[in-house]
Simulated assay, not measured.
Amino acid sequence: MKKYKEKFRYLDARLKISFVVVCILSFLLVLCLDREWIFPEGFWKIAMIFLPLLLVGFTYLWIWKPYRRLTNQVQRFSDGYISLADLTDVEVAISPEFERMARHMNKIITATRTLDMSKRQAQYRALQNQINPHFLYNTLEGIRSEAIIAGLDNLADMTEALAIFFRYTISKVENLVTVEEELENCATYFKIQQYRFGSRIHLEIEQDEEDWDDILHCMIPKLTLQPILENSIIHGIELKLDEGKVTISISRTKSRLLIKVSDDGVGMNRETLDKLNAKLGSKEEEVKNYTQPEKGGVALVNVNNRIHLLFGEEYGMHVYSLENVGTSVELSIPVIYNENELKKKEL
């Protein structure tokens, strides 16, 4: 009974049923008129009066009235009084296909609004976190100058690297940057870390010579690689007793940019790995509820969420790891050369 009730929520099903009923009644009427002896003549007079009234009342209550109610809802949506989600949550819908289309459109609109909100929040935080960046840069430049005068070349170089890193992280508010810019920021970050770890850590960039110039001009979300590089150093190599290496390799297919950040650190056990990949595979609404993820989970989930928001759920991140062997973080994003291509994808 519940199955049929759900089926008759749709006007297209009601129209089909009404058409079948009218056809059957018309056939029976013609058949019975051909055999007048079945019913007396007075019966047909009454039937010819009440049957059309019955059909009109049935059509009005079962089809026309719900149709007008649905039309009013669509009009209210067009006028901006209700949302698309309210339009999908109606007692009677036009058809299952229309309902699926409305729900799909609602997901697209919701995702677009979430992306716009995230952009505005990111820009607000960038502005908020600047705290007069010129003061910060001037202070660092002052420290660097004093270090050069005192002959402390290492301190001067470290201060300069820190200023470059802050300038990229704080001042640039773009959503997308080129692969070349992101790799330069990784090199700057790695240089800062080398002052701490010395020769214990190494960074290698694997280049695909054939497509490398093309790859460098591809655009990716800002601060995609540096947080992963940081995780590799802090949660992988730092815990080793001997030297360790992080390798960044980037290749491309016709439509996708494939990035892999690997380290030969301590790795992680199967349980930790499964939990992390489960978080990366979850929807953004579910992921944001995690407050204390395992090793580096916050940075990886953040990067993965931004990829989902910008490009869609079909792109993102997956982690592979073996305990005492190392960890690889693999990313897949679309090949894009300017932000206009991203706007076209959003449309």
Results as ranks from 00 to 15, higher is better:
residue 230 E to W: 00
residue 292 Q to S: 14
residue 25 L to W: 04
residue 333 I to K: 00
residue 62 W to M: 10
residue 334 P to L: 00
residue 333 I to F: 02
residue 38 I to G: 02
residue 217 H to K: 07
residue 164 I to N: 08
residue 46 I to Q: 13
residue 51 L to I: 10
residue 5 K to H: 06
residue 264 D to N: 15
residue 177 V to E: 00
residue 284 E to Y: 13
residue 156 A to V: 06
residue 81 Y to V: 15
residue 290 Y to V: 15
residue 19 F to G: 10
residue 277 N to K: 03
residue 89 D to N: 13
residue 89 D to S: 13
residue 62 W to P: 03
residue 147 A to K: 03
residue 55 L to H: 06
residue 111 A to W: 14
residue 20 V to M: 14
residue 236 G to R: 14
residue 38 I to W: 13
residue 88 T to S: 15
residue 253 T to P: 12
residue 332 S to E: 06
residue 110 T to V: 03
residue 32 C to N: 13
residue 74 V to M: 10
residue 68 R to G: 00
residue 79 D to L: 09
residue 324 N to S: 10
residue 92 V to F: 05
residue 72 N to I: 01
residue 251 S to G: 11
residue 36 E to W: 09
residue 34 D to Y: 05
residue 44 W to T: 09
residue 214 D to K: 11
residue 345 K to N: 07
residue 244 G to R: 11
residue 190 F to C: 08
residue 221 P to D: 00
residue 48 M to A: 12
residue 98 F to P: 02
residue 267 G to P: 03
residue 3 K to E: 12
residue 169 T to L: 10
residue 169 T to I: 11
residue 153 D to N: 09
residue 205 I to D: 06
residue 184 E to L: 09
residue 14 R to K: 10
residue 142 G to K: 11
residue 346 E to H: 15
residue 330 E to L: 03
residue 101 M to G: 04
residue 129 N to H: 11
residue 16 K to H: 06
residue 335 V to M: 15
residue 316 G to M: 05
residue 233 I to D: 03
residue 323 E to F: 06
residue 172 K to S: 12
residue 95 S to P: 04
residue 81 Y to M: 14
residue 193 Q to Y: 10
residue 38 I to Y: 13
residue 103 R to A: 06
residue 143 I to Q: 09
residue 299 A to H: 06
residue 104 H to V: 07
residue 63 I to C: 02
residue 162 L to N: 12
residue 339 E to N: 07
residue 204 E to R: 10
residue 164 I to H: 08
residue 260 K to N: 12
residue 80 G to R: 03
residue 347 L to G: 09
residue 69 R to V: 07
residue 18 S to N: 12
residue 231 N to D: 02
residue 158 M to H: 08
residue 32 C to S: 15
residue 346 E to W: 15
residue 337 Y to C: 08
residue 109 I to G: 01
residue 141 E to A: 09
residue 135 F to R: 07
residue 314 E to R: 13
residue 69 R to Y: 12
residue 303 V to P: 01
residue 167 R to T: 14
